[in-house]
Structures are given as C-alpha cells and as structure tokens.
C-alpha cells in the first residue's frame, strides 16, 4: 500500500488548480436569483391582483354584482372581516398569553415540551377541518349559551338576538378563529417569555416575590411588545382565514354588530371562496378587487407586526 513514492503522491495532491471562481459566481448568482424571485413574487401578487381587479374598479356601478358601486360591494365584507378577526383576537390573546406562561413558567419541565407539541398540533390541523368541527360540534353546542346571552345580556348590541338555532353565528366563527390563531400567538409570546433574563426573575424571587408577582413584575413587562406584535400576527391570520368562516357562518350580507344571530355579514375571504367557483365576467374581477383589499390590509398588519418584532429583537 505504501509502495507509492512520496513525490508521486505530492504530485497527485498538488496537480491542477482548483480555482473556485467560476463555480462560486454561478452558485452565488443562483442563490441571489432565488431571493430576487421571492421578492418578485410578492410584487407579482400585488401587480396581478391589480391588473385583474382593474376592470371592476373602472366598471360602472350597474354592471357590478349587486348593481351598486364597488365600495358598496366590498364594505360589508370588510366589516364582517374586521368584526370576526377582532373578536377572535379578543378571545385568543388572553388565552394564548396564559398558555405561553403555562409552558414557559408554570408547567414542570418534563411536561412543558410535550404540551407545546400539543399546542403546535392545533396549528397543523387544516382549516377545512376546523370548519367542519365548527358547524357540526361547536355551533350546535353553543346554542344554549347564545340563548342565555340573548336573555341576560340582550341589552348589549352584541347580544341583541334573535339567537341562532344552529349556532352558525359570528361569535362561534370568532371562537373557531381564536382556536386557529392561538398557536401562532402562543409560539411568539412563549419564545420571548423564555428569554426574560434570569437575573431579573431571580432578583424578584430573591426579594420574596411569589411566582405570580415575579411574572407580573418581570416576565410580562419584558414580553409586552411581543404580545402586541404576536397579536398583530394573529390578527393578520384571522383576517385572511377562509374555510372555517365559509363553512360555519350563516350569511345575509347585513351590517350588524349582533354576534349571536343568523344574519351576518360575510368576510372577504369566505365570500371569495364561496362565490368564485360560480362567478364569471365582471363578478370575478369584483371578487379579485375584494381580494386586493384583503391583501393590502393583511400586508399592512403583518408589516407593522414584523417591524415591532424586529425592533424588539434588536434590543
């Protein structure tokens, strides 16, 4: 084996240049190109939506679905979208923060990891299945509560009634959305809670603080902006969520704050999913115009959320 002469080996090893120049340039170009493709895609989403929405934007009112102008078509949908997402956030944020605290500070180490897997599992379930569960289980189960709300809190505009007999109401939709966005908010807040400096936490405990006092004095202030930005991420997701709303909500197109009735405004996303397959001509353009509004709103919300997160990370 070692019969090979040392000088021969040296020539084998040294032979030929191994300049990486050309390969490096090609590979770097490919990688950069992929990055540019992604940016171009995002720009393309905006561009193609505008192009296809344009006919609806410029069309005269009587040609559009509903026979009114585009704003009158999109406004009730936008209203429904905002109502559903807002209530979902109101339900989801406190729950998510509690779940995040449970995993980061309350649960014993042994079970914290499996528990966070379970929460992640919530995010893995396809939205169409949430929709089926909402209409088949949560809706019917909520009828008693809706009736109770109407009877006891009916003086509030939200619970004016008449209460739905099927549970296909805005409140139930928002509850389903809340479950869907909970894992997102939990994941972001939890990771920041876990980064709370030990010295702060131990400082509080060393002064004789109880665990809750420690959380209130150190963890929550530290995670405040994370809670805000995570809520905005959740809001973005709730605004765009389609199938759960499309399946569960009973729609009349009315603009109402009543959360427990059966005549609800639809949302932009659900309206597109339900109407698109049967639409043609200008109606398609009008739907795309509504999608453009949704895109713009979610883009703004997400960009704001990311800006807050990035600022937090830099500190």
């Amino acid at each position: 084996m070692s019969s090979t002469n040392v000088d021969d080996l040296q020539s084998v090893v040294r032979g030929g240049p191994a300049r990486g120049g050309a390969g490096d340039r090609v590979f770097r170009g490919l990688a950069t190109g992929a990055g540019v493709v992604i940016l171009a895609t995002l720009a393309g989403v905006a561009l193609f939506l505008i192009v296809r929405a344009w006919p609806a934007i410029t069309a005269s009112a009587e040609d559009l679905p509903g026979g009114e102008n585009l704003l009158a078509y999109i406004w009730p949908l936008t209203f429904g979208t905002i109502i559903a997402a807002t209530i979902a956030i109101v339900i989801a944020v406190p729950l998510s923060v509690a779940v995040a605290l449970f995993i980061s500070h309350i649960a014993p180490r042994r079970i914290a990891q499996p528990m966070s897997y379970l929460i992640d599992l919530l995010a893995a379930i396809p939205s169409v299945i949430y929709g089926l569960w909402g209409i088949a289980v949560l809706g019917p189960a909520s009828v008693g509560l809706l009736r109770w709300l109407e009877d006891n809190l009916g003086w509030l505009p939200f619970f004016e009634g008449p209460a739905s007999a099927t549970g296909r109401t805005m409140l139930v939709v928002a509850a389903v959305l809340a479950v869907m966005i909970l894992p997102i908010i939990t994941a972001v807040t939890r990771s920041v809670f876990e980064q709370t400096p030990r010295r702060l936490q131990e400082g509080a405990l060393a002064l004789g603080a109880t665990r809750w006092e420690m959380i209130r004095l150190t963890v929550l202030p530290f995670g405040k902006s994370a809670i805000i930005s995570a809520s905005m991420l959740g809001l973005g997701r709730a605004l765009g969520e389609t199938m759960a709303v499309a399946i569960v909500l009973s729609v009349s197109g009315a603009i109402t704050f009543d959360l427990i009735g059966s005549g609800n405004p639809s949302t932009i996303a659900a309206n597109i999913a339900l109407d698109f397959p049967e639409s043609s001509g200008l109606a398609v353009n009008a739907l795309i115009a509504s999608g453009l509004v949704l895109f713009a709103v979610t883009l703004v919300v997400n960009m704001a959320a990311r800006t807050v997160i990035n600022r937090q990370m830099r500190i």
Partner: peptide, 10 residues
C-alpha cells in the same frame, strides 16, 4: 416574514 402572513385565498 411578511409573506408568511399572506392569506391563502390571496
């Protein structure tokens, strides 16, 4: 990051 928040319907 922003793209992760694009609604699927969009």
């Amino acid at each position: 990051d922003v793209m992760t928040g694009i609604p699927s319907i969009v």
